[in-house]
Amino acid sequence: MAANTIKITLRSSDNQEFEVDEAVAMEFGTIKTFFDDNLDASIEPIPLPNVSSKCLSTIIKYCKFHLGLRSRDHSSLVADEAKAYDDELVDPLDNESLIELALATHYLDVKDMLDMINQGIADRIKNKSVEYVRKLFGIENDYTPEEEAEMRAQYEWAFEGVDPDED
Rank of each mutant, 00 (worst) to 15 (best):
N4G: 06
T5C: 07
I6V: 12
K7P: 02
T9G: 01
T9V: 15
R11F: 00
R11G: 01
S12M: 07
N15I: 02
E17N: 11
F18V: 11
V20F: 04
D21M: 05
E22R: 12
E22C: 05
E27Y: 00
F28S: 15
F28N: 07
I31F: 04
I31T: 08
K32I: 03
T33I: 06
F34A: 09
D40W: 00
S42Y: 00
S42L: 05
I43R: 13
I43V: 07
P45S: 09
P45L: 07
I46L: 14
P47A: 06
L48E: 07
N50L: 11
N50K: 14
N50Q: 14
V51L: 06
S53M: 04
S53G: 15
C55A: 14
C55Q: 14
L56A: 09
L56M: 09
L56G: 09
S57F: 01
T58V: 09
I60V: 15
K61I: 01
K61Q: 14
C63Y: 06
K64S: 11
K64E: 15
F65R: 13
F65P: 05
H66Q: 08
L67T: 05
G68N: 12
L69S: 11
S71C: 03
S71A: 13
R72I: 01
S75K: 05
S75C: 06
V78L: 03
V78F: 01
D80V: 01
D86A: 05
D87N: 10
D87P: 00
L89G: 09
L89P: 06
V90S: 02
D91R: 13
P92R: 07
L93Q: 09
D94W: 01
D94A: 03
D94Y: 03
E96H: 05
I99D: 02
A102F: 04
L103C: 06
H106G: 15
L108W: 04
V110N: 04
V110K: 04
M113A: 12
D115P: 00
I117L: 14
N118D: 05
Q119I: 04
G120Q: 09
G120C: 07
I121N: 06
A122E: 08
R124Q: 10
R124G: 10
K128W: 03
K128M: 14
V130Y: 10
Y132W: 12
Y132Q: 10
K135Y: 01
K135V: 03
L136A: 08
F137S: 12
G138L: 10
N141P: 08
D142N: 12
T144H: 08
E146I: 10
E147W: 04
A149S: 13
A149T: 12
E150C: 00
E150G: 00
A158R: 10
F159Y: 15
G161M: 06
G161N: 11
V162A: 08
D163A: 13
D165W: 02
D165I: 08
D165S: 07
